Computed example of a mutant assay.
Amino acid sequence: MSNQKSEIRNSGAPIGVFDSGYGGLTVLKELVNILPQYDYLYLGDNARAPYGNRSFETVYEYTLQCVEWFFSQGCSLVILACNTASAKALRTIQQNDLSRIAPEKRVLGVIRPTTEVIGNYSEMGEIGILATKGTVNSESYPIEIHKFFPDIKVYQEACPMWVPIVENDEIDTHGADFFIKKNLHSLFHKGPHIDVVLLACTHYPLLKNKIQEDLPIDVKLVSQGELVAKSLADYLQRHPEIEQQCSKNGGRLFFTTDSAEDFDNHGSAFFGAPVSSKQITL
């Protein structure tokens, strides 16, 4: 791995970063940019991806298995860098499972850190959400945004083709152009006065340049990674009892439940640097 320590000390407690596949690497990239001193352990559940169209029960089951794996690796803090897992599994894990399996540990998601600040970006009071079908159907973003910004109007658009486009290296194709234009047209038909668009899927930053080309010039396009990283920095400052457990050797380890070779080939585009992973079985 380039400019990365390939091992984390056995006595360390890395910060766990989880996604159903590669997308969470865009969040990890921002975490490393803002908080480079910490050890990170990334797991992509590629063998069972995508999570977006699976039931709440299945996403919860899979996510809990992965969280328990992180805990078995010494992680005291796990970030669900997956919108579907954050929407469908996080609350149940926090409320029902942590007290039973690891009351001293914490699991956080990507939805709340995003929704508690996204309203500050809008002057018109109308926000558009681009996400997977599972995230849209969960209504997590409208519900959470309205807790912090009750007067803001939220419009959602499910983009079921965007993840396959990214994962199949079809970004620079006419097909990608077609589906991006189609979904954006649908979103702005619902909310013509939207002035902020949130990419509520960790795959979508790889399409950011193309999306930007089709947005009105006065519309802000926001990705989650930087918001989540800033929120984590604040969380660690406010919770020294958790922060002190996190090891700080600058290490990065990558794991996948599917082919390590495939993960490494695709993952580097998401992480912005070469990755070297190991395959595990849950």
Rank of each mutant, 00 (worst) to 15 (best):
P36M: 08
E126A: 14
Y22D: 03
T115S: 13
Y155M: 01
Q65G: 11
E157P: 00
E7Y: 13
K147V: 04
H266M: 15
K181N: 10
L215W: 10
T202P: 09
S140V: 07
H266Y: 10
I118M: 08
E144I: 04
P113A: 04
Y38I: 06
Y62D: 07
E226C: 07
G225F: 07
E57T: 09
K190V: 04
K220Q: 15
I165N: 00
V196Y: 06
V275A: 05
L187E: 03
V117R: 13
W162V: 00
I145G: 03
F188R: 04
Q244I: 11
V17G: 09
D45K: 04
P274M: 02
K147T: 12
N33V: 00
F188M: 09
V27F: 11
R238M: 12
T115Y: 05
L77S: 08
I211T: 07
D218L: 03
E61K: 14
D258F: 12
H185W: 01
H266K: 15
L187T: 04
C159I: 01
I111T: 09
K230H: 14
Y22K: 01
M124G: 02
L282N: 04
G128K: 08
Q212F: 03
R252V: 00
L90M: 11
I127C: 05
Y155V: 07
P113Q: 07
P36S: 05
F178T: 08
V228G: 01
H174W: 00
C75Q: 04
K248L: 06
T202A: 09
F188I: 08
P160Y: 02
G23S: 12
I111A: 06
N10P: 02
A85W: 09
Y40H: 08
E170D: 04
Q94K: 14
S55K: 04
L236G: 09
E167W: 03
Y235T: 11
C82R: 06
G44T: 08
A47C: 03
L25E: 11
I34G: 00
I15G: 02
L80I: 10
V17Q: 05
K208R: 15
D39Q: 11
C66I: 02
Y62L: 15
I111E: 09
G125A: 06
K208E: 14
E7D: 12
